[in-house]
């Protein structure tokens, strides 16, 4: 199995995760989607120096992972390629923003360091929440939920096709890498001189395949409605979940939980 096939298996594994059974899997897709969106908005809304305020937001995804039976490390493992990119976003802050904001013992911590950490944490939290949604809800159901809230049909179809396209492209990449190495034994990676044609071929091939896949969907009656992916009904428990989650976000956002806990500890 080459690297690409492994990647592909992991994509397939996402589908497998999404059909497991747990209280989180059993939830209404719309409720989960809404909650995830609100969560991400709230996380993004924190001030860039408010690291201590943001930390309690970690509790929600951690709790949800517990409930869903999906280990948090699965998320970090699957996202190991994206994670560093997200983390890199704030890397330069410490260089530009050197004003000392806080002292731990007698080491001064600059605003840049704090805003870097805050940004990193924001990125990680958003990734964790999005991953949880995708890992506990079949992708077609997420699309169905988006349609339910009147998200434009074109965009939903595009989203669905993108999701499938990634799979197709990985598959083609796997086949082509194998074919290349069979004829270039002992070479590590793909020689620079072949990059152009390799990339061109990859795009053409995966586009052709994606086109056929889409045709195949159309031929079997796909018309941007998702009757085939029924959303689990919105139950009382979903309402409770939604209210509790939003209440939690509001508390973390408007009450300084860390300070509060600190006060308790000091007493």
């Amino acid at each position: 199995m080459n690297k690409m096939e492994k990647a592909l298996n992991e994509l397939g594994h996402m589908d497998e995760l999404a059909v497991q059974e747990s209280p989180v899997h059993a939830m209404n897709a719309g409720a989960k989607l809404l909650c995830t969106v609100i969560y991400i908005l709230v996380v993004m809304s924190f001030n860039k120096y408010d690291l201590s305020g943001l930390i309690p937001m970690l509790l929600w995804p951690v709790f949800m992972y517990q409930m869903s039976g999906i280990p948090v490390r699965t998320c970090f493992y699957k996202l190991r390629i994206v994670l560093p990119l997200v983390m890199a976003v704030g890397l330069f802050n410490p260089i530009f923003d050197r004003e000392i904001m806080l002292h731990i013992g007698n080491i001064g911590v600059s605003g840049g360091v704090i805003s870097m950490l805050t940004l990193m944490l924001k990125g990680v939290l958003c990734l964790m929440a999005s991953f949880l949604l995708v890992a506990t809800t079949p992708f077609d159901n997420i699309c169905a939920a988006l349609r339910r809230v009147h998200f434009p049909a074109m965009l939903v179809t595009l989203l669905l096709l993108t999701y499938r396209y990634v799979g197709v492209m990985t598959e083609e990449l796997a086949v082509m890498t194998d074919a290349y190495h069979l004829r270039a034994p002992g070479q590590k990676g793909i020689h620079v001189s072949a990059w152009g044609s390799f990339l061109g071929q990859l795009l053409l091939r995966s586009m052709d395949r994606a086109q056929e896949l889409y045709s195949s969907m159309l031929l079997r009656g796909y018309h941007q409605h998702f009757h085939y992916a029924p959303i689990k009904p919105f139950k009382f428990s979903d309402a409770v979940f939604l209210i509790l989650s939003i209440a939690f976000f509001a508390i973390v956002k408007y009450v300084n939980v860390s300070e509060l806990m600190g006060m308790f500890l000091v007493r």
């Binding site: 397939g12 589908d15 497998e16 999404a18 059909v19 079949p138 077609d140 499938r164 598959e171 395949r209 056929e212 896949l213 195949s216 969907m217 031929l219 079997r220 009656g221 796909y222 018309h223 409605h225 009757h227 085939y228």
Partner: peptide
């Protein structure tokens, strides 16, 4: 229509879901 390349025919996660796709759409 049974396509020449079945890789491009199946797009749902499982065989069962793929078989249900057409009838449910109709």
């Amino acid at each position: 229509f049974v396509l020449q390349n079945s890789d491009n025919q199946m797009f749902m996660p499982t065989v069962y879901e793929d078989m249900m796709f057409g009838p449910l759409n109709y």
